[in-house]
Write a protein that binds this DNA or RNA. Structure first.
Lengths: 126, 126
DNA sequence: TCATCTGTATCATGTATATAATACAATTAT
DNA sequence: ATAATTGTATTATATACATGATACAGATGA
């Protein structure tokens, strides 16, 4: 479990983003246990309070569920999970299109560039 | 001159992003005068110090140039301008690909979705 | 049983950001 | 000439975030 934090965004948001990504990709399955606050804080070298903040927000967004004194678990609600994926894709496309807009370039010109960049990325992933 | 600020990112960064976008799109031309710190602060309803911070950073990045007691002007250095555009496109593609990665979707499936979204956006632009 | 783990909560401190209130020298416009 | 505008600079205050140090009740494992 490794996360490379940037210095700009709040850490608790980056932690949330990290877990959302794991859920979206299917690497974290519905019902699966989350690492404990203290354990994750230790692994990521951050403060337990910061992890708690991230978990609290995910709890509010119904992405995880916690019973008293028990480890948190990924939600099994298919509606929540489906919506997460839809929002993820929608967000990615909106951001991309908005960024591209000011450049004088068409989608047709863009596709080969994207293909190229996706290939080189595959290698990096290992 | 209108900017819709989000509450998450520092305002001075959003101001910088706003002007970079104008330069990349060609709406702001090399050598053109920037609005004065006070005037822009008034229009955007933000503090002059925040504008000053944004301008200072853009000056450091050589995007604008300021002579003493004169309005700042967009750089005319073609190298700086070209690099800005290249970085802008590279950044957009990298962010997009990274966001798409966890989703199980190919570029072929994506292109029609992007086309659709770009159309609806054109309308919104006015 | 008892030590250890769980989630939850509070308080103090430091840093980055945004705002507000000024100030000053040099240029520009009237 | 002189009033207004330019960029630049400083100081103080408020807020969000991250950290550190604790604390407590309930569940778990040896």
């Amino acid at each position: 479990m490794t996360v490379s934090f940037n210095k700009r965004d709040p850490i608790y948001l980056q932690v949330m983003h990290y877990f959302k990504r794991l859920i979206v990709s299917g690497e974290l399955l519905p019902g699966e246990e989350m690492p404990s606050r203290r354990q994750l804080a230790n692994e990521l070298k951050i403060n337990p309070n910061t992890v708690q903040r991230a978990y609290s927000e995910m709890e509010e967004q119904r992405l995880i569920h916690t019973e008293p004194n028990r480890p948190s678990r990924i939600t099994e609600d298919p509606v929540v999970l489906e919506q997460l994926k839809n929002e993820w894709l929608k967000q990615a496309m909106t951001t991309f299109i908005s960024a591209i807009q000011p450049l004088d370039i068409s989608l047709n010109e863009l596709v080969p560039l994207l293909e190229e960049k996706m290939k080189t990325r595959k290698k990096d992933d290992k």
